[in-house]
Structure formats: structure tokens, C-alpha cells
Simulated scan of single mutants.
Amino acid sequence: MDSLYLLFQNDKDVRELVEIPLKDRVKLIGVSRYTDFDNGDKPAFNGAYPFLQDSNFGAIFGKLMQLCDATFSDPQQREAFKSLVKENLSEWYNKETGYTFKMTEQLVKSK
């Protein structure tokens, strides 16, 4: 059986990981968040969070690099801008996925 590991951060900046067993193999698309109210009001929609899979990130990354190529006619400016975009995107992606992966590894090892 597959599992989905949901990493979240609470209001005290503590990150927690929750395991959700999946009955079948599924293609993960995203998560929607709703808030339940104590006064009996209907739950309120708080946002949608699409899953950014490696293959999707690669496609977006490639398109952004094409945009960078089309932004400047001067080769030196173009390469400098492209380098900045590439560095910042890679840093963000590696930080986010790396932290999630480490938390998941720890959870799986603790079982």
C-alpha cells in the first residue's frame, strides 16, 4: 500500500508530517484546505495547493529558461539574468523538496 506524507507548519512554526494511507496507486494532483468553524457555519475554502512533481517542475523550469533567452538581446545580460533565475529557482526547489524528503525518510525509518 502506498502512503501520502503531508508536511505542514502550524502557527508556532513547528513542522509536522502526517501519513495518509492510499488504497490504490493514484496520480496526486493537489490538496484543498477548508476551515471548520465552531459556531456551525459551513466550512470555508482556504486555498488549493497543487502538487509540483519533478516532471512538472522540469517543464516549468525549461519554459522559464526560454523566456529568459527571449528577454535580452545582449548575450552578456541574457546569461546573467538566466543565471540568476536558474540559481533562485533551483535553491527554492531544493530547499522545499529536500526538507520534505528528510522528514519523510525519518518517519519511514521510525516505523
Score class of each variant (00 low, 15 high):
67 L>E: 13
51 F>T: 00
32 S>P: 01
29 I>E: 10
32 S>K: 15
27 K>S: 01
80 A>W: 03
110 S>H: 11
105 E>C: 06
50 P>C: 00
50 P>E: 01
75 P>C: 10
68 C>T: 15
41 D>C: 10
109 K>H: 14
48 A>R: 06
108 V>M: 04
92 W>N: 07
31 V>G: 02
28 L>D: 03
47 G>P: 09
79 E>K: 11
52 L>C: 05
37 F>C: 00
33 R>D: 08
60 I>S: 08
36 D>I: 00
72 F>V: 06
17 L>S: 12
87 E>L: 04
12 K>H: 11
89 L>S: 04
30 G>I: 01
43 P>D: 14
90 S>E: 06
33 R>S: 09
73 S>T: 11
12 K>R: 15
13 D>N: 13
7 L>C: 02
59 A>R: 10
70 A>N: 13
48 A>S: 12
109 K>R: 06
98 G>F: 01
22 L>Q: 03
17 L>C: 10
110 S>Y: 13
14 V>G: 06
1 M>G: 00
54 D>E: 15
69 D>T: 14
62 G>S: 08
24 D>L: 01
16 E>V: 15
72 F>M: 09
89 L>H: 07
71 T>Y: 07
104 T>G: 03
61 F>N: 10
15 R>F: 11
88 N>G: 08
14 V>Y: 12
111 K>C: 05
56 N>S: 10
14 V>H: 12
98 G>S: 02
78 R>F: 11
63 K>P: 01
1 M>D: 02
88 N>R: 11
60 I>V: 10
24 D>I: 01
38 D>W: 05
84 L>K: 13
4 L>A: 01
104 T>P: 03
64 L>C: 06
13 D>P: 03
63 K>V: 13
53 Q>Y: 00
9 Q>M: 12
41 D>F: 05
70 A>V: 03
1 M>Q: 00
35 T>S: 06
66 Q>C: 08
64 L>F: 10
3 S>N: 09
44 A>R: 15
11 D>I: 07
